[in-house]
Design a protein around this nucleic acid. Sequence first.
DNA 1: GTCTATATGGAGATAGAC
DNA 2: GTCTATCTCCATATAGAC
Lengths: 190, 190
Amino acid sequence: MNTKEALIASTQELLWTRGYTGTSPRAILDHSGVGQGSLYHYFSGKSDLARVAIERSAERMKARVATCLLAGGRPIDRLLAFLNDDRPILRGCPIGRLTADPEIAADETLRSIVADALQRCRVLLVQTIEQAMVADELAKDMEPSVLADLMLSTLQGGLVLAGAAASDVPYRNSVAALITLLRRPDSAHR
Amino acid sequence: MNTKEALIASTQELLWTRGYTGTSPRAILDHSGVGQGSLYHYFSGKSDLARVAIERSAERMKARVATCLLAGGRPIDRLLAFLNDDRPILRGCPIGRLTADPEIAADETLRSIVADALQRCRVLLVQTIEQAMVADELAKDMEPSVLADLMLSTLQGGLVLAGAAASDVPYRNSVAALITLLRRPDSAHR
DNA sequence: GTCTATATGGAGATAGAC
DNA sequence: GTCTATCTCCATATAGAC
């Protein structure tokens, strides 16, 4: 891996575990083994390097979600594959964790990359939920976008609780509970 | 309000919006209008002041949750009151946001206060869910602790999404979807 | 108790040599 | 392209006067 890529990879790594405010250029150089001069040769500064690193992580997340939701098979099975996708639970979401960072919130460029990545996942999710409802695999007693938000909240919130408890149990419980509830028939079928 | 209380209140405020890593002693002094000397007179340093501030915020959250869940009336109504409790959605959860802070995660004292506060809310939630199941107000097709985790995840995740989108819609959608799902009959009643 | 002065180290970046 | 030197500012505190 070349120097530039090493900087990006180390920044992705550190942003994931320490956030933007908690990551210094010094820490990035130490982690990557790259020298001071190279950082400012390839990037204009910390925020520029972070922008590239976050874009990289966002692309990765969107690709992963798309792989689950745009695969073949029944829509409901794709949704379950998305919910049950193997995630590094104790590390949290590399994008979701940045939403709480004060310096990211204050930087419109960085903020929009994060918000956009989540938004794109939501769009894919809404489409797949619509397909599942049309195929009568999901009850139609709520708007697809409303259910999509619950799915994303369950995952993001599960990761928050898992991080706090230093255990994957709250995350797994949350996903399991949501799936159990989705399997219930809606009121119209009573 | 005396000087010490002003320091605590300002620290609570800044930890809420900027996290621990993103909050400097200088910012606390500026926000509170208190002088440098007073901070180190009343507290041993930043982490000591933060500890008191976080304990204060944790007590506040636990009290708020207890007010909803230990009120009179049917268990299911108390659960709905908890889910529908009026929260400052765009500001996020003052405790939940700290779970992602790297310096809090590294400080066992601070970390345990945050984890403990969430855990106590979970315990109250489990108890109330058990009562609702006994009273046949909730389906018994899952463990109370599993459903409790989903409820907490929905709220915490809803706040994450709301922060990212700078809109309360994802949060409100998530809560509404969860309540809709909870109202469905379980499979045994088909 | 609160003030101001001072200290150390790190954040974040620039400059110029190689 | 990468290195080292240097710069300014801020984080986090300590010291001692008032």
